[in-house]
Amino acid sequence: MKQRKKVKYVHEGPYVAEVEVELLEDDTGWSPYLSVDDAYKLDDIREAIRQGDLEAAAKYGRIYELRPVAHQ
C-alpha cells in the first residue's frame, strides 16, 4: 500500500478550508481513498465552519473567506 499527501478543500458557506490529507493507494478497485481518520477530520472541519467556530477549524489547516468580486 502506498500513501501520498494531497490537499483537499472543504467549502462551507463563505469559507474554504485547505486541509492536507493522505490518500491510500493499493491494488483494489477502491483506490485511492482516504483513511477513516482523515474522513472524520474533513467532517469535523465542515461542522466547525457550519457552527461558526473558525478557531477549531483552523487547527486542521488554513481557512479562507470567500468574497464576491465586483463584476461589470
Rank of each mutant, 00 (worst) to 15 (best):
V36A: 13
V36Q: 12
P68Y: 09
A58N: 12
I45G: 09
A17S: 02
K59P: 00
G29N: 11
I49E: 11
S35C: 05
Y9Q: 05
L54H: 10
V21M: 08
I45Y: 05
V10I: 11
H71E: 04
L54E: 13
A48D: 15
Y15V: 11
V10C: 03
Q51T: 15
D44H: 06
E55F: 01
A39V: 01
A70N: 01
R46I: 01
D43F: 06
D38L: 06
V19T: 05
A56Q: 15
L66A: 09
P14W: 00
Y60K: 09
A70Q: 02
K41L: 13
R4N: 09
L24S: 03
A70K: 03
E22R: 13
E20M: 13
K59C: 03
V36D: 13
V7A: 06
G52C: 10
R67M: 14
R67Q: 15
P32V: 07
P32L: 11
V21P: 03
R46D: 02
E47D: 08
W30E: 09
Y15A: 10
E47P: 00
W30Y: 10
R4S: 10
E55K: 14
D27S: 14
V16K: 10
G13Q: 05
V19F: 02
E12M: 02
V16H: 02
I45Q: 10
V21T: 10
G29M: 12
R46F: 00
R62L: 07
I63V: 14
V7N: 04
Y15N: 14
D37Y: 07
D44Q: 04
L23D: 04
R62T: 06
D26H: 09
V10L: 02
A48E: 14
K8Q: 08
Y9C: 02
W30F: 11
A56T: 15
E18V: 06
Y15Q: 12
K6R: 09
E20P: 05
K5C: 03
